[in-house]
């Protein structure tokens, strides 16, 4: 396999990913959210870096599209911090994907992240800093933010 072929393929893949992101705008624009060309390039880099950091491989359709689709109708996601939020969500997604040992599907994980995001009034920090267990438990049992915290308090009291 020549290096030349490999490099050519990488460029093709990057272009494919950018094309995919452009189609994402069609959906998100309905909610007033648009990714700029610069934002797309940054997202492409963030995705590549996240995959590298988490030791994962993604070929073909990217989960980034699903992440955008899963979050774009959140009332807490605004154009001002849209691109920055996406970058962090992409990082968190691949981190959690490894953390769950691939036991959650992409859609389940995105749904769990979204619920956490909304429960904490659009706090990406809340999504990133939570544990996978907490996030899944909250999703499975439909716990609210308060109930979730109460549970954690109870656990601490028990100790």
């Amino acid at each position: 396999m020549s290096q030349e072929n490999g490099s050519g393929l990488i460029l093709v893949l990057r272009e494919q990913f950018l094309t995919e992101l452009r189609t994402v705008n069609e959906t998100s624009s309905r909610y007033g959210l648009i990714l700029s060309e610069q934002g797309m390039l940054e997202l492409a880099q963030a995705r590549t870096r996240a995959l590298f950091d988490q030791g994962r491989v993604e070929l073909g359709v990217s989960a980034v599209k699903s992440i955008v689709d899963g979050f774009c109708d959140s009332p807490y996601l605004l154009q001002d911090d849209y691109e920055a939020t996406l970058l962090e969500l992409v990082d968190a997604f691949y981190y959690f994907k490894n953390a769950c040992g691939d036991q959650l599907t992409d859609d389940e994980l995105i749904q769990a992240m979204r619920e956490r995001y909304d429960a904490y009034a659009g706090s990406v920090e809340a999504v990133i800093s939570t544990s996978l267990e907490t996030m899944c438990r909250a999703r499975r049992f439909g716990l609210t933010e308060d109930a979730d915290e109460e549970d954690e308090d109870d656990e601490r009291d028990d100790k």
Binding site: L51, G55, R56, V57, E58, L59, G60, V61, S62, A63, S66, Y94, K97, N98, D102, T105, D106, D107
Partner: peptide, 16 residues
């Protein structure tokens, strides 16, 4: 990879 994950996941660990 798509068959292996049965469409549930777009990514897999490098080792897989």
């Amino acid at each position: 990879i798509r068959r292996y994950t049965m469409g549930d996941s777009t990514s897999v660990p490098v080792d897989t």
